[in-house]
Amino acid sequence: MTREKFISEVRTCQGQLRRFLASLCGDAALADDIAQEALTRAYVTSGRFIGNFKAWLFRIAYNCFIDHLRRSPGPSVDLDSREAMRLTGGAASDASFELEELQRALALIPEKERTAIVLFYFEDLPIKEISSIMGSPAGTVKYYLSVGRNHLKEHIRQ
């Protein structure tokens, strides 16, 4: 794949990529760092790429996120940080509160459930594509979605 084609493909999905990683990390700045690392890795190995570019890129980004967790397995980002607040948007106060609660709850559930939830509800991806991104069977992804929803419900009610 030429550099021009690569940049053109990245341009169409960079917003979704950054949003996906920001929802996983809870920190927009960290998400952008991981996104840059993922894009660099993707470009170097783009000679072997065949198929769905977005799913392939998201797979690399997800692996970069996992690598980051392994390198620094600290506690989740403080949701009162400015970076986290940027994610909630500027809606009316009730909706804004709901978004804050959702972001807070997302940071508390396990990483695999969070990934499945973010990819299904925020990125509107089908189960099959989520399965290829996470490297888990479709049945397992459905399980993560179901359990993730239940965990979110518990955290939001608290």
Binding site: V10, Q14, R19, D32, R86, L87, L102, Y121, R149, I156
Partner: peptide, 17 residues
């Protein structure tokens, strides 16, 4: 419903590309 309405929006960063 909360999840579908809670899609976060990031500010547009031209500097990213």
């Amino acid at each position: 419903q909360i999840l579908r309405e809670g899609k976060p929006e990031l500010p547009d960063e031209g500097a990213f590309l």
